[in-house]
Simulated assay, not measured.
Amino acid sequence: MAVNEEHIYSPGYRLNVNNVQIYYEYYDHEDPEAKVVVLVHGFLSSTISFRQLLPYLTKKYKVIALDLPGFGQSEKSTSFIYKLTNYGQLIIDFLDQLHIQNVILIGHSMGGQICMHAAKKAPERIKKLILLGCCSYVKRASRSLIACSYLPLFTWGMRSWIQRKDVKQNLLAVLHDTKLVTEEMIESYKKPISEAAFIDSLIRLLRHREGDMCSQELKDIQQPVLMIWGKEDQVMPVKTGYRLKHDLPNAELIVYEKCGHLLMEEKPLEICNEITRFIEQDEQKAANQKETS
């Protein structure tokens, strides 16, 4: 992918993918053969959630981080159908437009489910998956709640709920180390959810989002999968990680002590080291076999 050198660390780019404006950041690498990793954020989040991980990953790889439709700086589309499978297809179409063939996907929380959908759709292009506190086994919203979402007062109620949400308290709930929560961090995470149209996107996601993949569907994902979990994760308890490891044919699970759901903020260096080991292990095995042959 040709990117002007002076724009490597620019604030970001915009790309029209299936009539939706997508915001993304691209970090080039001096090695033209460096692998490409794509970062996919979770629910109520954006590229900001990878801010601590990026400085480590960009030393080793070409890195792309994007805001999903409805989140961050991407379009709050009224035409996009906010289903996980459609998000997965959008990742593939996004890569098509950038003329990128082979990537490793890294997904946090809901982004992990989206990465798995992309992996099922394009197994020849998605070489490996890295799932961080991956959202799993969540069912679709009830019919009654979906029906209520069409009532005139529902949007007002949702907007009031978002306005009342204390970003600081939310961050404290997803982090084990509460000392990490600073005013700068609060402002960084508050900005992407402050846009008025964000509420409408959340309502569409509530209506459209299907349930997470079931055990049988997960067995179809044949790529190597690295799962990393925080033992103190209160959003997706670690027992979910063990269940997911059982259902995925080719997965390993690493659990960090004293770490919550937003583990990229708490363990960025450790996560990057595990990611590097996981990505490079095939090459290392091949090199070892060559030496012994």
Results as ranks from 00 to 15, higher is better:
residue 216 Q to K: 12
residue 223 Q to T: 00
residue 168 K to A: 10
residue 238 V to R: 04
residue 168 K to G: 12
residue 222 Q to F: 00
residue 199 I to Y: 02
residue 169 Q to E: 15
residue 171 L to Y: 04
residue 202 L to V: 05
residue 180 L to A: 05
residue 179 K to N: 14
residue 165 K to T: 15
residue 201 S to A: 15
residue 204 R to P: 00
residue 239 K to R: 11
residue 201 S to H: 09
residue 230 G to Q: 02
residue 233 D to I: 03
residue 183 E to H: 12
residue 221 I to A: 00
residue 205 L to D: 03
residue 221 I to W: 02
residue 176 H to R: 08
residue 214 C to W: 06
residue 209 R to E: 06
residue 221 I to R: 00
residue 172 L to E: 09
residue 197 A to K: 07
residue 178 T to H: 15
residue 233 D to V: 06
residue 188 S to A: 15
residue 182 T to L: 06
residue 208 H to R: 03
residue 166 D to S: 15
residue 224 P to M: 00
residue 170 N to F: 14
residue 166 D to N: 15
residue 234 Q to K: 15
residue 206 L to P: 02
residue 173 A to W: 07
residue 177 D to G: 08
residue 182 T to V: 09
residue 184 E to M: 06
residue 197 A to G: 03
residue 177 D to S: 14
residue 194 S to G: 11
residue 212 D to R: 07
residue 220 D to G: 01
residue 205 L to Q: 07
residue 206 L to A: 04
residue 191 K to E: 12
residue 172 L to N: 13
residue 208 H to Y: 11
residue 202 L to Q: 10
residue 187 E to P: 09
residue 183 E to T: 12
residue 177 D to A: 11
residue 189 Y to H: 13
residue 167 V to S: 09
residue 217 E to H: 10
residue 231 K to W: 03
residue 234 Q to H: 14
residue 211 G to W: 07
residue 206 L to F: 01
residue 211 G to C: 10
residue 218 L to P: 02
residue 196 A to E: 12
residue 166 D to C: 11
residue 166 D to K: 12
residue 221 I to M: 01
residue 193 I to F: 13
residue 181 V to E: 10
residue 180 L to H: 05
residue 199 I to S: 04
residue 214 C to G: 12
residue 174 V to R: 02
residue 222 Q to V: 00
residue 225 V to P: 01
residue 180 L to Y: 08
residue 177 D to K: 14
residue 232 E to V: 07
residue 182 T to N: 11
residue 179 K to E: 11
residue 191 K to Y: 11
residue 237 P to N: 14
residue 233 D to C: 07
residue 218 L to K: 04
residue 203 I to T: 04
residue 233 D to A: 10
residue 181 V to Y: 06
residue 226 L to W: 00
residue 194 S to I: 10
residue 231 K to E: 07
residue 228 I to P: 00
residue 168 K to W: 08
residue 197 A to Q: 09
residue 241 G to H: 04
residue 223 Q to L: 01
residue 178 T to R: 15
residue 210 E to I: 02
residue 208 H to K: 02
residue 180 L to E: 02
residue 210 E to D: 09
residue 205 L to Y: 06
residue 232 E to S: 14
residue 234 Q to R: 15
residue 226 L to K: 02
residue 187 E to T: 12
residue 226 L to T: 00
residue 183 E to C: 10
residue 219 K to N: 05
residue 209 R to P: 01
residue 233 D to N: 08
residue 215 S to L: 07
residue 192 P to Y: 05
residue 229 W to Q: 01
residue 196 A to N: 09
residue 178 T to V: 14
residue 193 I to H: 08
residue 172 L to Y: 13
residue 187 E to I: 11
residue 186 I to R: 10
residue 185 M to K: 12
residue 219 K to F: 00
residue 165 K to V: 09
residue 176 H to S: 07
residue 176 H to Y: 14
residue 232 E to Q: 15
residue 203 I to Q: 03
residue 187 E to S: 15
residue 179 K to I: 06
residue 209 R to M: 13
residue 236 M to R: 04
residue 201 S to E: 04
residue 201 S to G: 13
residue 209 R to I: 08
residue 187 E to D: 15
residue 240 T to P: 07
residue 231 K to Y: 05
residue 236 M to P: 01
residue 238 V to S: 05
residue 237 P to Q: 10
residue 195 E to G: 09
residue 167 V to E: 07
residue 181 V to T: 11
residue 239 K to Y: 08
residue 183 E to P: 08
residue 200 D to C: 06
residue 231 K to R: 11
residue 212 D to V: 05
residue 217 E to F: 11
residue 182 T to F: 08
residue 184 E to G: 13
residue 231 K to V: 00
